[in-house]
Design a protein around this nucleic acid. Structure first.
Lengths: 248, 248
DNA sequence: TTCATATTCTCAATTTTTGAGAATTGTGGT
DNA sequence: ACCACAATTCTCAAAAATTGAGAATATGAA
């Protein structure tokens, strides 16, 4: 393991179940000698990517919080999306959680969420959480808008074959509805957001309790999401043009 | 420049004013040949630390969002603090913003914030924003609890000499009040939070409009913050013990 | 197609990293 | 103050990775 990958391998050790590590544990987990692990940790420490916790244990450092803010402030999708999420939740008329998610490697990453004040449930999705590519309305809405070639690379030819019809239907309908696919008792409804110029494929979704999404309300929510997604695409285009204009 | 520093130098180029860079611009800014810059960017790309924006421009990648969530979920200060922030704002009785901030290198980093629903102002501090070490109630409350030796290293002997009396007064009073030091028209009141075991020095602060913080209310808010900070310190201790108990 | 620009590749010289163990630092207990 | 013990840094030659300049390839628009 060389270069950046060596550092990232250490950082990827930290997770919710094991949030702190000793250097000896890291060396063990990565099968490198302790002296090497110490050098790596020292470098990460100097950059604020890890920090010392209680004696001899280390945890992720505050640098991520700083970079996350920059992302929040400068990512075109989030700039276009954060107040759209708020208004979607408000206009939904029922307790709801709005999500903005995007493709991230071989997963789908939630990059922004907004929970209505009266929501008594909370979906698995939340800002920063990666989710599987082939499950849930949120992911499927994204997959449906990906070119077949890229899809095959991402999920494999067999998986693609078994989803082909479902994805075609989503593409035709312009939205995807899933009940209990991710969280028992919750329903998700998602619409895709695409911006070629920025290289973005994403989706906007609303999660509500299953029994609240019936008949006329389903139709209303769908219309709400569709127009919100259109608004976001419009904003992305405008933002892109401004950027190009001012930078070139 | 070698190892991790080489990659971080690229990442530190990205900021709010210049959120996207071409490889040529990076090579220029860092005074390295383009072929080297391309290699570095390729590695960062593979880890999701940068991603391609519109043609030939790159921006910070989504990996930071993922790591930020882990930080949110596992940092003991944030675990202890997020609902304390909420209740402090609620009990303040006036439009307010509560902040949880901590030492981060030679700056103070805001790691959590909570804005009351009726707040019509927003302070410079927000989650992820680093702020100067010697200005504002939030920072001073932290400095006041640092050992002199560490202080001298951080801000220099001269700066320390000129702040010595002020910091001693804060240490005695147990809180720090600043009016308009950071934002015109706003007042900040901060109390320190220290947890030796976790190696943490932080502060909890409330920002309100200047004219709202007078007489009896100042006293009430101070008491509110003091007890909230005590509650957080208690939680940090408990969390620390559980961790030690289960891991060793 | 052709052009122009973005990106990857090649290769020898240079620099960095590696691993094992020794040396040092730091901490708590006596 | 001392010791014992663990955490961390240091040392060194061998091994591996990075560097820089330019050539070679992609990519995309005209």
């Amino acid at each position: 393991m060389a270069g950046l990958a060596r550092y990232m391998a250490v950082l990827r050790l930290f997770n919710q179940a094991t949030p702190t590590w000793t250097v000896a544990e890291m060396a063990d987990a990565l099968a490198v000698p302790q002296s090497t692990a110490y050098r790596t940790v020292r470098d990460l420490l100097a950059e604020g990517l890890v920090e010392m916790s209680s004696e001899a244990r280390y945890r992720l450092g505050p640098a991520f919080i700083e970079f996350d803010r920059l992302t929040r402030l400068t990512d075109p999708l989030m700039q276009a999306g954060s107040d759209v999420l708020r208004s979607v939740v408000q206009e939904a008329g029922v307790p709801a959680v709005a999500l903005l998610c995007r493709l991230y490697g071989r997963e789908v990453l939630c990059i922004a969420d907004h929970v209505s004040p009266d929501a008594s449930f909370s979906p698995s999705y939340e800002r920063g959480r990666p989710m599987p590519l082939t499950q849930g309305a949120t992911s499927k809405a994204i997959l449906a808008r990906l070119p077949n070639k890229r899809l095959a690379k991402l999920i494999g030819a067999e998986a693609l074959a078994s989803m082909r019809h479902e994805l075609a239907a989503i593409r035709r309908a312009g939205f995807c509805l899933g009940r209990g696919e991710i969280d028992e008792g919750l329903a998700g409804i998602a619409v895709p957001i695409v911006c070629e110029a920025e290289g973005l494929v994403a989706s906007l979704s609303l999660v509500v309790e299953n029994h609240r999404l019936a008949g006329a309300r389903e139709e209303r929510v769908r219309a709400l999401l569709t127009s919100a997604a259109a608004e976001m695409e419009r904003r992305l285009l405008v933002a892109g043009h401004i950027q190009e204009g001012s930078l070139r």
